Amino acid sequence: MKNKVQYIGISLLAVFMTITSSAQMTFTAKIENRVGDTITIRGAQKFMKKIAVNKKGLFTETFEVTTGFYQFFDGSEYTQLYLKNEYDLLMTLNTKEFDESISYKGNGSLENNVLARKALDDEQFQLKYLSTDDEEVFAKAFEAKKASDAKLFSDVNLDENFRTVMTKRANQEYAMMQQMRESDLKSKEMVGKPSPTFTYENHKGGTSSLSDFKGKYVYIDVWATWCGPCLAEIPHLKKVEADYHDKNIVFLSISIDAKKDHEKWKNMVDQKQLGGVQLFADNDWNSKFVIEYGIQGIPRFILIDPNGNVLEADASRPSSPDLRKKLDALVK
């Protein structure tokens, strides 16, 4: 799913860890409609494990971990795992449904099913309520969401470290949701008005400004090299760019990486052969363009009309069929 859901928890990407054990855990998965021959598990302290997936979408791997939270990446989408030595975990997943299909059995399934349930609940809440203009409806749904999370974490059989961390993170997420809601309401007010402008470094040399593309529709991707969901959108963005390359639209990506990661940005653009116009913002999250759009989470997509006015301040992602419907109506 994840078509327009914001990436909550930029500051929550740090993985919470505890004590290392000398034991190992076993991780087994059955993946329907696999998207690649490997999956990747990432964690703190530069932990990264690539696991081969056979043609039937199966794998079993035994390895040592430090108790804590990890990211599972199938080549297209991410989900979070809670891993601990001595776990014997079985995951089932259908990539065509992803969050809706994730399920776990075995030792460690309790914590990981809570993670999967919460991810789906978060997504549905954001889609249904985060952008509503009705403050009463939002407030009621928000309180119900917090109560639902508390119930998820209340099971005394859950790992104590897991319960503690999840409760702390949930409280951080609630504050971020409030910020995102304020940003979303601000985005709605921007529609039809002149877009904030920019002049940023162009990967091909020199600088580019929004005004350079007047007379064309401009689809902007605000991203960063460290953002998993941003990277997951790249293959979809490449396909959309290819399909609309001869139309009256420019695809423009703005990296908000920190200045220290400037070379990392340049190298990633080259290595992944990123198309369109590739720009580097002048002051990461504090760049004027980012602030004026009230961007609190990435990836963020923006659609601007040929006159430089905002069509959508929070546009559909490249992976969403809604984007093509919108572009077809505009440029075909």
Rank of each mutant, 00 (worst) to 15 (best):
residue 248 N to Y: 09
residue 89 L to W: 07
residue 161 N to F: 14
residue 191 V to G: 04
residue 214 K to A: 03
residue 91 M to Q: 12
residue 184 D to R: 12
residue 154 S to Q: 13
residue 319 S to G: 06
residue 36 G to C: 01
residue 252 L to H: 07
residue 240 V to G: 03
residue 40 T to M: 01
residue 129 Y to K: 03
residue 101 S to N: 12
residue 291 I to P: 06
residue 151 K to P: 13
residue 111 E to F: 06
residue 256 I to F: 07
residue 72 F to D: 00
residue 7 Y to T: 02
residue 13 L to E: 14
residue 149 D to P: 08
residue 204 K to E: 09
residue 121 D to A: 08
residue 6 Q to R: 05
residue 332 K to Q: 09
residue 293 Y to Q: 10
residue 287 S to D: 11
residue 83 L to E: 11
residue 314 D to C: 04
residue 324 R to N: 10
residue 125 F to H: 04
residue 56 K to V: 04
residue 24 Q to P: 01
residue 303 L to W: 13
residue 100 E to W: 07
residue 113 N to K: 09
residue 142 F to A: 05
residue 294 G to V: 14
residue 32 E to I: 03
residue 49 K to H: 13
residue 27 F to H: 08
residue 296 Q to R: 08
residue 168 K to E: 10
residue 55 K to F: 01
residue 156 V to S: 14
residue 87 Y to V: 02
residue 126 Q to A: 02
residue 122 D to C: 02
residue 11 S to E: 03
residue 270 D to N: 08
residue 163 R to G: 10
residue 302 I to P: 05
residue 9 G to E: 06
residue 126 Q to E: 05
residue 186 K to G: 03
residue 315 A to P: 02
residue 112 N to M: 06
residue 40 T to H: 00
residue 163 R to I: 14
residue 202 N to Q: 00
residue 178 Q to H: 08
residue 81 L to G: 09
residue 132 T to V: 00
residue 57 G to E: 01
residue 50 K to F: 04
residue 309 N to I: 05
residue 103 S to D: 10
residue 145 K to I: 07
residue 304 I to L: 12
residue 270 D to H: 07
residue 14 A to V: 14
residue 138 F to W: 01
residue 10 I to S: 01
residue 16 F to G: 11
residue 175 A to E: 08
residue 277 V to D: 13
residue 283 N to F: 12
residue 296 Q to G: 06
residue 61 E to I: 00
residue 259 K to C: 04
residue 89 L to D: 06
residue 170 A to D: 14
residue 308 G to M: 06
residue 158 L to Q: 10
residue 160 E to A: 14
residue 17 M to T: 15
residue 3 N to M: 03
residue 182 E to G: 13
residue 74 D to Q: 06
residue 184 D to A: 10
residue 127 L to G: 03
residue 262 H to L: 02
residue 54 N to K: 00
residue 107 N to Q: 04
residue 43 G to E: 11
residue 19 I to Y: 07
residue 29 A to Y: 05
residue 51 I to V: 08
residue 231 L to T: 12
residue 18 T to S: 14
residue 26 T to C: 09
residue 171 N to T: 05
residue 159 D to T: 06
residue 81 L to C: 09
residue 206 G to N: 01
residue 314 D to T: 09
residue 284 D to A: 15
residue 29 A to E: 02
residue 77 E to D: 11
residue 165 V to T: 11
residue 322 D to Q: 06
residue 300 R to Q: 02
residue 272 K to P: 00
residue 249 I to L: 11
residue 150 A to Q: 15
residue 12 L to A: 09
residue 84 K to E: 08
residue 330 L to W: 05
residue 214 K to T: 01
residue 15 V to L: 15
residue 302 I to G: 09
residue 277 V to P: 09
residue 48 M to T: 15
residue 323 L to S: 00
residue 84 K to L: 05
